[in-house]
């Protein structure tokens, strides 16, 4: 931002003053202060928001690349043990984030099998942990959606001699608007979790601190304005993304004639 230095200092000082003020005043001041940090573009706050979005969006992208085809295969491919596989993937949806964090930690720690990569306590490690956490969510929800579509399409595609790979591609494409819901659920879960990123990221200030880990830390330190500001941003992001996705889905389905 191209603000004159004096204004910047002024804003930082004011933020500091307001932050201190809440220790002696009421809760309204806390909200005012949080609001102030948001509209003045507090750099620490925005760095945290940026990192959170970067980590969770990248994790969602990776999880989608694995989870969507996996969900489609589970929906249409008949093989021994399919039901067991479906139950397993559904069960993985409920994995506690800290446990995933722990597993990735062990994998990436200096003496772990992937320790030589040296990426523990970096955003990359956080992306890996979140991707592992949400891949089963995306796969399981995609399977549900696509299984319904497959019931309709199976005979027609068989009569057109479409291969398994072709059928997967067709299901993913024709189900793309419904699949947004699965992606959103994955992204929402990634954004909201604390356990995995705190274990593998370490909550390092200015490097691996995300919205959720910052909220946890600041709340425990008693810095409520930052915690509340972040909480508000988190809520707004989640609501906005859901609204956008809902609009895309509605229009898309109408245009494609799904509804």
């Amino acid at each position: 931002m191209n603000m004159p230095a004096s204004v910047c200092i002024f804003s930082e000082e004011l933020t500091y003053a307001v932050t201190n003020a809440i220790k002696f005043r009421g809760v309204e001041i806390v909200f005012l202060s949080a609001f102030w940090m948001l509209i003045t573009g507090d750099p620490a706050l925005y760095r945290i928001i940026g990192l959170s979005l970067y980590v969770s969006l990248t994790a969602t992208l990776i999880a989608a690349l694995v989870g969507l085809p996996l969900g489609a295969l589970l929906a249409l491919k008949e093989f021994r043990g399919r039901i067991a596989a479906v139950v397993f993937v559904n069960a993985l949806m409920g994995m506690p984030p800290v446990v995933v964090g722990l597993a990735v930690f062990l994998l990436l720690s200096r003496s772990g099998p992937l320790g030589s990569l040296g990426i523990l306590f970096t955003p990359r490690a956080m992306i890996i942990a979140q991707a592992i956490l949400i891949t089963p969510i995306i796969a399981a929800l995609a399977r549900q959606t696509l299984a319904d579509l497959w019931v309709q399409y199976r005979d027609e595609l068989a009569a057109m001699n479409v291969s398994t790979a072709g059928s997967v591609a067709t299901l993913l494409w024709d189900g793309r608007f419904s699949l947004l819901t699965a992606l959103l659920a994955g992204f929402g879960r990634a954004c909201a979790e604390v356990g995995a990123v705190i274990v593998v990221g370490g909550n390092i200030d200015g490097f691996t601190r995300t919205m959720t880990t910052a909220i946890a830390l600041e709340t425990s330190k008693g810095d409520l304005p930052l915690a509340i500001g972040l909480g508000a941003v988190l809520l707004v992001i989640v609501i906005a993304i859901n609204a956008i996705a809902w609009a895309i889905r509605r229009t898309g389905e109408r245009l494609a004639g799904a509804a």
């Binding site: 057109m160 024709d174 494609a256």
Partner: peptide
């Protein structure tokens, strides 16, 4: 090979695409 056989189902299911794309899909699959 079933390449030159075609089937019209009792209750045909249209792909969630335009009329032209439904035919295009069949052409591509052949």
């Amino acid at each position: 090979a079933a390449t030159r056989r075609a089937f019209l189902f009792q209750r045909p299911v249209m792909l969630m695409r335009s009329a032209a794309s439904n035919i295009d899909y069949a052409l591509a699959s052949a």
